[in-house]
Design a protein around this nucleic acid. Structure first.
Lengths: 203, 203
DNA sequence: CCGAATGCTGGACAGTAGGTCCATTTCGTC
DNA sequence: GACGAAATGGACCTACTGTCCAGCATTCGG
């Protein structure tokens, strides 16, 4: 159900207006959709995604429940479409920075950090600890403890937690990718690969 | 709802027997719990956590639904307790490797990789792409594309996807931690910190 | 400015899942 | 073998999802 990069969403929401040859959108539709998206956006920050029901959204938006279903197929659909807004903004930020003379690698990260700060509440709701499943959270905690212990002697302790998160996050991701791919390479190889990246970076 | 490291679970399941001074467990209880846990374990791999209902579990286990509730408060409870098994095994693996003369840093990672491979299906169900929320998945995809493009020139292309996962995962984690902490440091600082880790490692 | 088209409403309805309760039966434990 | 704890299954309630429809209101196009 993950969005493919090539997907195109025909309809613009909110401030961005109508294209010339595009199917013009009824004002009522635009209004209703914005109301629903706004309501969802706020509720998600208040209660977390899972706890928000369609009824909540409609009540908050002041919209009939049947209306909801004429616009979205369900909660997930609404979420996916809302994420498109963030995505669009992020890519825009990235494009803007591309033109500047900053040619260091990974320059998009600054854009992402800034974008995130600008939309802190949204990001919190989407990426925060609440958003992670309990399973992942637990495993993550175990790893974090081990890493923290390992790091105790090394270097200065400021930014320590960031380093911990860095290592754990990288590890979880590599592990996930490995598993999704069928765990073809050996554990030892993965271990070596990962350790090299951790110790010496990607240079 | 995340399990704290200090938590103790009194009751052992499956093969591990009864302690002397511990409240002895009725065989029926042990049997029922194991049946439920096994059923859950398998169902989760077949349909994914969300799709599994309490009814499914009870049907598969051959246990009355009301019985379920005398043992667990709900699906999450069952999941949490099941994770305890993995956790115990992992810590045991780690302890075993600790005694060996391998003194490289992060040695626990090999244990984790091996443990994961041994329990591949379980890990897949718990950590695989299905386990991640759609939101995180989407953002992750966006980042992965950017990183992949960035990496195009550098070094050899084998293990490229692992490196991509590494960077993206680390980034997501650092970002999450930063946000959860209230985004106190500036985006630029975070950017610098993260870039240093990526480029030169934690040395 | 008017009429047709389209969208919105609110309520009814069916289906599914979660969670509680209890009388009855079954099964370990002593 | 008797006692007590555990299992059963079915009744019951709540909450949410998703569909459908008849009637009202807005908007769009002319």
């Amino acid at each position: 159900m993950t969005e493919r990069p090539g997907d195109v969403h025909q309809q613009m929401h909110g401030a961005h207006g109508q294209e010339a040859h595009m199917p013009v959108i009824d004002r009522r539709v635009a209004r209703t959709r914005t109301k629903l998206e706004r309501a969802f956006f706020h509720l998600m920050q208040e209660k977390g995604y899972d706890a928000v029901t369609i009824n909540d959204i409609c009540d908050r938006a002041g919209v009939g429940r049947s209306t909801f279903y004429t616009h979205f197929t369900g909660k997930d659909d609404l979420k996916r479409r809302s994420l498109e807004h963030l995505r669009a903004e992020l890519l825009e930020s990235h494009a803007r920075l591309k033109s500047v003379e900053d040619q260091r690698p990974f320059r998009f990260m600054l854009a992402m950090f800034e974008h995130a700060r600008r939309h802190l509440p949204a990001y919190r709701a989407l990426m925060g600890s609440e958003g992670l499943s309990v399973s992942l959270g637990t495993i993550r905690d175990i790893l974090a403890d081990l890493v923290r212990a390992e790091l105790k002697g090394r270097g200065t302790s400021d930014g320590r937690e960031t380093t911990v998160a860095f290592i754990v996050g990288a590890f979880m991701a590599v592990m996930t990718q490995w598993l999704d791919d069928g765990a073809k390479t050996t554990p030892a190889e993965m271990d070596a690969h990962f350790r090299r990246l951790i110790e010496h970076g990607v240079g």
